[in-house]
């Protein structure tokens, strides 16, 4: 039950993009086509879960040696090298998967949602399992927001929009409306 609430909270109530403002760059960058946004969502789910698993184990070492101030620098290095390693392994073992997710992997290193979730989960949870469930649920929330948003953007390209509003302004205002809709979930889980 706790885990169910945790998942609902991370996917809908505290949606990572629309209420916490993490991972805006890929959210705006790869949301022009529905297909690419599915690919990005899958890649983020994979990397975020794996990275949080590794960093929450690493946190034990940082705490036991009393060097938690090195959290930022160790986490970003671990995530960056993990992404590189995943890319190499995936290319060798699962070429179809690499074809689908490959181009998104290097982009994820500078996705602040991955580092953000790794740091947040060390502040919120003490057990590794909780952290990993939280990371997977957050990634699902990211995917949900991304897919909804790219659906809206594909539609809005067909309309005749005032010239100054084209491009970034329209995308941001669409995101604002989507975020307003997600505010309706607040209070669902405390």
């Amino acid at each position: 039950m706790t885990y169910l609430l945790l998942i609902i909270g991370a996917v809908l109530v505290n949606n990572v993009v629309l209420t916490q403002f993490l991972g805006i760059c890929p959210f705006l960058g790869v949301s022009k086509r529905l297909e690419t946004s599915f690919g990005m969502a899958a890649a983020v789910l994979f990397v975020m879960t794996l990275a949080t698993l590794v960093t929450s184990l690493l946190q034990y070492i940082l705490v036991s040696w009393n060097i938690t101030f090195l959290q930022t620098i160790t986490f970003i290095l671990v995530i960056a090298s993990l992404v590189q390693m995943v890319e190499i392994v995936m290319k060798k073992i699962a070429p179809p998967l690499y074809q689908a997710l490959g181009i998104f992997l290097p982009l994820i290193t500078t996705n602040c949602a991955v580092l953000g979730v790794a740091i947040l989960s060390t502040q919120k949870f003490s057990s590794v399992l909780e952290s990993v469930v939280y990371a997977a649920a957050t990634a699902l929330g990211f995917g949900l927001a991304l897919v909804l948003f790219s659906g809206l953007r594909e539609q809005s390209e067909l309309y005749d929009i005032p010239k100054p509003m084209r491009g970034a302004p329209l995308a941001l205002i669409t995101a604002g409306l989507l975020s307003l809709a997600f505010m309706g979930f607040s209070g669902l889980v405390r």
């Binding site: 629309l18 209420t19 403002f21 010239k163 100054p164 509003m165 084209r166 491009g167 970034a168 302004p169 329209l170 995308a171 941001l172 205002i173 995101a175 604002g176 409306l177 975020s179 307003l180 505010m183």
Partner: peptide
């Protein structure tokens, strides 16, 4: 209050950029 909450951020930034694009054009 909405402007301090999450949606306001998106809306205000979107409108600022729209104004700048208008001025630029």
């Amino acid at each position: 209050l909405t402007f301090i909450l999450a949606p306001g951020g998106f809306l205000v930034l979107g409108l600022i950029i729209a104004v700048l694009q208008k001025l630029n054009s």
